[in-house]
Design a protein around this nucleic acid. Structure first.
Lengths: 92, 92
DNA sequence: CCAACATTCACATCGTTGTGTTAAGGTTGG
DNA sequence: CCAACCTTAACACAACGATGTGAATGTTGG
């Protein structure tokens, strides 16, 4: 999993001269808070990727905002959706 | 696909008395702009779901912002990621 | 030197996303 | 009435996300 997160550039440890991954305080904190984000909010990695894009890509943010406004998607709908996903999980 | 979008509550047409889906101008616009969002920005449906959550769930937005700030993930990294995904697709 | 670690690479698995297909049947315009 | 639509339900499926497992090999503290 750590390798996966590294490849996704989410938590990238430094390397020792012989290639060993060195996890410092910074990385441990990232890992802990990342786990919190995921368990408490059901956030997925692609979601974080998207959040990062939203804050840096101006026109993307505009387009998304426009879409959301134009379609009156109350967040309640989406919460419902995520919730049903959860329920399906629990049913197994 | 239309059924899928309806179930995901993204584009929900009205129904005739006998259950037929009635797509009006509003829905057609939603479909067109949705397709643009996807093709131009590589946005996925879960991303839009997440954007909707971000704008309504205060504490979630805070948590994500904190995480992004604390880990100095330049958006360039994520763009890279998405780009490699694309390249892999094209390679097939 | 060697046991206990680490590394990469490759593969396996399970659920989700986004699509399409087919079957069995209801609605409707002409 | 009937052909041409629509509906739901069920299944199929490739790609991706998130995770684990194993083999073959390198590093290191004592």
């Amino acid at each position: 999993m750590l390798r996966y997160l590294e490849q996704a550039r989410l938590v990238v440890p430094r390397r020792s001269s012989s290639g060993y991954r060195l996890y410092g305080l910074r990385e441990l904190n990232q890992l802990r808070s990342l786990r919190q984000l995921r368990s408490r909010f059901g956030v997925e990695l692609t979601d974080i990727a998207f959040a990062a894009r939203l804050r840096s890509e101006q026109d993307l943010r505009g387009a998304v905002d426009t879409w959301l406004a134009g379609s009156e998607v109350g967040a309640a709908d989406w919460v419902d959706w995520e919730q049903r996903k959860h329920e399906r999980l629990l049913a197994a």
